[in-house]
Simulated assay, not measured.
Amino acid sequence: MKSKKDIRTLLLEQLEGRNTHVAFDQAIQGLTFKQVGIRVEGIPHTIWELIEHIRIAQDDILEFCKNPDYEDLDWPDEYWPAESKPESKEAFEQSLQLVRDGINEMRELIMDPTNNLQRPFDHGDGQTLFREAMLIVDHNAYHIGQIVLIRRLLGSW
């Protein structure tokens, strides 16, 4: 059967995790504040570090898409949180919401018909909105998989 979905719809399906990958909200469902700061032996990051890394990288990608005066963050220091666990439950919940907000913001950019998905940004070196959206899809999927792995090792998946 031939798909009649346009490229924007297909891209949104990937962004929202509606195909083969676990979506962000699925990966964090039932996650407790205590669990996010546990460091599992042999795993380099806590769930908190992964959530914050997703948020920071996603925000950086969105900033690049919107800001012609964008300046790179310093890799790797500015892409990872300084602490292995959140300072409070509120900080944890805020970070979760900011990841969701970033996904929604990219969704809006993709769905805006005035945005040409394949036109290179005037700044950068050839990046397009399509490429940046796929970067979020790929990056998030990778780290969401790590969150699921840690949850499995903690016996909470």
Rank of each mutant, 00 (worst) to 15 (best):
E87I: 10
R119M: 09
I54R: 09
F92M: 12
H139D: 12
K85T: 03
D125Q: 15
K2F: 05
I103Y: 00
D6N: 09
R100Y: 10
E41F: 05
R39K: 13
A91K: 14
D101F: 09
N115M: 08
G126R: 10
W80S: 03
A82S: 10
Q94C: 04
D125M: 13
E41W: 10
Q58E: 15
N140R: 13
R8V: 05
R8D: 01
P68C: 09
L149M: 14
S88W: 04
P120A: 03
A57C: 09
C65S: 14
E16N: 13
E87S: 14
R107S: 04
H53M: 02
E52W: 03
P120I: 10
K85N: 03
K89I: 10
E71K: 13
E90Y: 08
M106N: 05
I144Q: 01
I150W: 09
M1D: 14
T32K: 02
H21F: 12
D77I: 11
A57S: 15
V36Q: 02
V22K: 11
C65Q: 10
G126P: 02
G42K: 01
L10K: 02
P113S: 10
T128W: 07
F64G: 04
F33S: 04
E41G: 07
M1V: 11
D77N: 14
R152K: 13
T9P: 00
W75A: 06
W48D: 10
D138S: 14
R100S: 10
V137E: 07
E71R: 10
Q14F: 06
D6G: 01
A91E: 14
I28V: 15
H21T: 13
I54S: 08
K66E: 13
N116H: 09
Q35N: 12
I61L: 11
H123A: 03
G17T: 03
D60V: 06
H53K: 05
K66L: 15
I110Q: 09
D72V: 01
S84R: 05
E71A: 11
R131H: 15
T20Y: 14
G124M: 00
G42L: 02
R8M: 12
M106K: 05
A57F: 08
D122W: 03
D112W: 05
E13R: 09
M111H: 01
A133F: 08
D69K: 14
K85M: 10
I136N: 05
E93K: 12
L31H: 06
D77F: 06
Y142P: 00
R107D: 02
A141Y: 07
F121P: 01
N115R: 00
F64R: 01
K66I: 02
Q127K: 13
I47P: 07
L129K: 00
